[in-house]
Write a protein that binds this DNA or RNA. Structure first.
Length: 478
RNA sequence: GUCCCCAUCGUCUAGAGGCCAAGGACACUACCCUUUCAAGGUAGUGACACGGGUUCGAAUCCCGUUGGGGACGCCA
């Protein structure tokens, strides 16, 4: 090879990828993973990432689903450089290609009725053949009165198509296995395989990264692409994501809207981290930020086999991300989560609360739940904890606690801690003996962040008030 | 049924012929730390689907079997 200098970025080498969901269902975790890899590939190569909505199925496409896609992508931070394009806005272009195909014989009208197609299919199945259109209208057929024909692409009958897939290697298909697919429905709507082909070519997509459920569509698309004089892009078919039980993703598992993960308290960066590790890895690296992923990601390192969702690991990954963030960074997320639970976070130091809880909760939702007592005085003591720590015998400890704390000079964690250890020493007991009753008095249960931090966050007045209430409770009605 | 894809611990994975009596992570168990809960630390249980080749040597290459998945639509 020559050693002449090549421009670092040639126009022809600009990487262009796209994410092309259909708004017929919710954007779920599987779609997000596809979007992530496609996006990361473009970003890694400083290319262009395009969002395209495939809405040619007018019956089932909904505005709602479109909205989830847009909101989901924004929430995750998967930004696009072009689009969103809508296929329904490109009908003129599709029509032009179809007319061109019709004109040069690369496509033809088919007048077969649904019944005719159905019996053809039944016969083939009976013969244990792969059901497919037998091409009976190929040679031309007189128009059937009252029937609006569909348009079929005339697929080559002989030869083979080789799909050069970056993750799977070459995949060979015999043209004899393919049939003449419908590219224009009788209602005038073009179909998926055709639109994808036109769009990927028009939008100069260089790398088609999508789920491997599309492998079988690829040879048809290549044939159509060649028919319109296009060049074949690089294909990368990603393995599927399965439900936790290893079966197809369904609503029961994880095929829920990606926005549900937001509502369940997952950080976008953590979800993307988890998804990035499904089918891809970089040595033993488990926890990484999105920017790091972009730097490391390479579609050639993607696995071929499907992977199952592991809910525990999503949660673990989320906690790892929370622990790497500061309380201040976490605060807005916690505020949002508290809002979902109808709690007004005003008047409290959310950064301090998040800091205190981030290593003891796995999701923001758990964090919001665990921090409830900071915002609302516990309505009742957790029975077991109360029985153990707020009985009549606890009264002396609580009273001593009240006196010691009330006399403290600076109400902050360090001084509070000092005060508590001194009190424990004075009474000749371990810290646990006084921390637990105090904890139950403040939090209502035996679980809370470290007691000195809890006191500090709660503040002097509120802490002493809760202590008084606990003292009264320990005195008991009877 | 036909075509296509896939196959390492329960799960996610490392492994691109010798460095592997198979490494890491989640989960699980035990212990340590400890003011609760966590986090953290240490140790442990646990896998190359099976059968043939190729090779001095195979988790790694080839073939077959089995198992799983996908596609076969006027859905995408």
């Amino acid at each position: 090879m020559g050693r002449e200098a090549r421009p670092v970025v040639e126009r022809t080498t600009e990487i262009r990828t796209r994410f092309a969901p259909s708004p017929t269902g919710l954007l779920h975790i599987g779609g997000v993973r596809t979007a992530l890899f496609s996006w990361a590939y473009a970003r890694h190569h400083r290319g262009t990432f395009i969002l395209r909505i495939e809405d040619t199925d007018r019956e089932r496409s909904t505005d709602d689903a479109v909205q989830v896609i847009l909101d989901g992508m924004r929430w995750l931070g998967l930004d696009w450089d072009e689009g969103p394009y809508f296929q329904t806005q490109r009908y003129d272009r599709y029509r032009a290609v179809i007319d061109q195909f019709l004109g040069d014989g690369r496509a033809y009208h088919c007048y077969c009725s649904k019944e005719e197609l159905e019996s053809m299919r039944a016969a083939q199945l009976a013969r244990k053949e792969k059901p497919r259109y037998d091409g009976r209208c190929r040679g031309g057929r007189e128009p059937v009165p009252g029937v609006v024909p569909v348009v079929r692409f005339r697929n080559p009958v002989e030869g083979e198509v080789v799909v050069h897939d970056v993750v799977h290697g070459p995949i060979v298909f015999q043209n004899s296995e393919l049939d003449d697919l419908i590219i224009l429905r009788s209602d005038g709507n073009p179909t998926y395989n055709f639109c994808v082909t036109v769009d990927d070519w028009d939008m100069r997509i260089t790398h088609v990264i999508r789920g491997d459920d599309h492998i079988n569509n690829t040879p048809r698309q290549i044939n159509m692409l060649r028919a319109m004089g296009g060049e074949v892009p690089v294909y990368a078919h990603l393995p599927m994501i399965l439900g936790p039980d290893g079966t197809k993703l369904s609503k029961r598992h994880g095929a829920v809207s990606v926005l549900q993960y937001r509502d369940e308290g997952y950080l976008p960066g953590a979800l993307l981290n988890y998804l990035g590790r499904l089918g891809w890895s970089h040595g033993d690296l488990e926890v990484f930020a999105l920017e790091e992923f972009v730097g490391l990601f390479d579609v050639e390192a993607v696995n071929k086999s499907a992977s199952a969702l592991n809910v525990d690991k999503i949660a673990w990954t989320n906690q790892q991300h929370m622990m790497r963030m500061s309380g201040a960074q976490l605060a807005p997320f916690l505020a949002e989560q508290l809002g979902r639970s109808g709690i007004d976070p005003a008047g409290r130091d959310l950064a301090a609360i998040a800091e205190a809880l981030k290593e003891r909760t796995r999701t923001l939702k758990e964090m919001a739940e665990g921090s409830q007592f900071f915002f609302r005085r516990p309505e009742a003591y957790e029975p077991k904890a109360a029985a153990k720590h707020l009985g009549a015998d606890a009264q002396p400890v609580l009273a001593a606690l009240r006196t010691a704390l009330a006399g403290i000079a600076g109400w902050e964690a360090g001084a509070l801690h000092e005060c508590l250890t001194q009190l424990a020493e004075a009474r000749g007991v371990g810290l646990g003996k006084i921390a637990q009753p105090l904890r139950v008095a403040l939090a209502g249960s035996g679980v809370s962040p470290p007691i000195d931090q809890t006191l500090a966050i709660l503040g002097r007045d509120e802490s002493l008030a809760r202590l008084d209430r606990a003292i009264a409770f320990a005195a008991g009605p009877a």
